[in-house]
């Protein structure tokens, strides 16, 4: 019974997020997410080379009113930043396993 309740909650949650996903995240919000994600990667020393370039290009596109282009660029930056942070976390835990013998 308890489990069922939990399921309902999860289902409702994912529905709401689904119904938002289509239209909610505009280019500007994507850009903010990308910036935050990249700052998090940089904070642990694992920022990638091109991420901030995508982000600043996205900002320029947004200023020019090119929503779609801005969104694509921001998303590229965001995806890189998320991976970079994951890479950093993985390395901080496991770097000693990668010492060649």
């Amino acid at each position: 019974m308890k489990n069922l309740k939990g399921l309902v909650v999860i289902a409702t949650l994912s529905f709401t997020s689904l119904s938002f996903a289509g239209d909610a995240l505009n280019a500007e919000e994507m850009l903010i997410d990308a910036e935050e994600a990249n700052a998090a990667a940089a904070a642990i020393g694992f920022e990638w080379r091109d991420t901030s370039k995508f982000i600043s290009e996205a900002r320029i596109a947004l200023a020019d009113g090119k929503q779609e282009e801005a969104y694509q660029l921001a998303q590229r930056g965001y995806d890189q930043a998320v991976l970079a942070k994951k890479q950093g976390e993985l390395m901080m835990e496991n770097w000693e396993k990668y010492i060649p013998m």
């Binding site: 080379r49 890189q80 901080m92 770097w95």
Partner: peptide, 21 residues
């Protein structure tokens, strides 16, 4: 030492990957 052995960047390589392996 940690820096040297940690993979970084989009290519996921460490200093040791190139300068040792």
């Amino acid at each position: 030492k940690e820096f040297f052995y940690s993979k970084r960047g989009q290519m996921n390589l460490s200093c040791a990957d190139c300068h040792m392996r």
